[in-house]
Design a protein around this nucleic acid. Structure first.
Lengths: 206, 206
DNA sequence: GTCTATAGAGTGATAGAC
DNA sequence: GTCTATCACTCTATAGAC
């Protein structure tokens, strides 16, 4: 990829994160990248092309950190993945803050991302079920329990940045992972608790 | 309140819900209300005045449905309140979909709403603790458990519309309340389960 | 590849007649 | 209260010189 093109992409991501997706214009991007508006639209003919390129980068980097999710993981491995996801969410913060707005403006992205979401939730549900069969979590008769837990876990992690923002608070990775794992805690077995004591590096929770 | 003013407010809420907060302009509102743009800006001198009036209406109606929350409630009463909130969330859907955008554009609203949020979370936490003392939920040594449950419950209900929207799904009140109560289910005692069987009108969950 | 200049549409806000 | 007309601004996108 062209060097200027790469600079445009990275600067745009930075501005989106700083000012919000809707509050960044092409003239502003050109200004910060220190090129002319005409040059910017030479590299990205339409604004949508720029957004598409950023989403492609988003997908590419996300694929790297989620390739581990494809295999079923124990709770400790899931925690490592979750921490990786937190870093990723910081890098593409605008995406997690302005997701609905982006989906509304770019239906093509919406369609792709919605498929991704369902895959994520299903993957989480499968991992929880797997941990039940490993003896780390309670085995329930109804598999729907871990389908719901997957959805709750997804909701809490993906909307973490947004809830922090709307509450006007600041946060860190420890607070985020703790909130997520507290959802799982009630389902742990004695055996699973051992993993949890590693995850919560502090004292036991209850 | 003036009749035209009321019509403007209700139409604007409807358009916000339909098209998203950022995608509604003053000319469009005037057009749908069937008045001139000049007339619209006679009633609301600045766009911010219109938004402020809508937020005042939002607060007013929210105060009515949340006045019960002030008293500590058992699980059945909390379920009734949650169902009332679902209706409210439908009426002011744009607010729950575009909350961050609104807070960014109108810091005065952000400040007020953030205080409201913390009050809501604390109220939920207190109600859960109250239910523990009633014997419906497990009594833990650490009160932080129900502080976290309050936060999770809040997150799941307030971001319900948004997660449904970004996933491109549709939903209903039963699905929303079930998702919320499944967070509480692992903390129920034998006694508390009786309330739950009323809440989940279907068969037992596990 | 990079620039300047500008078209064309939309936005919030204001002035002044009725 | 309600209208028409318009200003000043911003945005995306395009044209054409270098």
């Amino acid at each position: 990829m062209n060097k200027t093109k790469k600079r445009i992409l990275e600067t745009t991501i930075r501005l989106f994160n700083r000012d919000g997706f809707a509050n960044v214009s092409l003239p502003q991007i050109a200004d910060i990248v220190d090129i002319s508006l005409g040059n910017l639209t030479y590299h990205f003919k339409k604004k949508e092309d720029l957004i598409e390129s950023i989403y492609a980068l988003f997908q590419e980097e996300l694929a790297i950190i989620t390739k581990d999710y494809k295999q079923l993981s124990n709770l400790g491995e899931m925690d490592e993945q979750l921490r990786g996801f937190y870093e990723f969410q910081q890098r593409f913060q605008f995406f997690y803050l302005d997701l609905l707005e982006i989906e509304r403006a770019y239906p093509a992205i919406a369609e792709r991302h919605q498929k991704h979401i369902e895959g994520q939730i299903n993957g989480l549900a499968k991992s929880f079920t797997h941990n039940a069969s490993l003896g780390n979590l309670t085995e329930y008769e109804k598999p729907i329990i871990y389908q719901h837990l997957g959805q709750q876990f997804w909701l809490n992690t993906v909307f973490w940045s947004m809830q922090i923002a709307v509450r006007g608070r600041t946060s860190n990775v420890e607070e985020m992972t703790q909130a997520a794992w507290l959802l799982v805690l009630p389902h742990t077995t004695e055996k699973g608790r051992i993993d949890f004591e590693h995850i919560f590096k502090t004292e036991k929770i209850d």
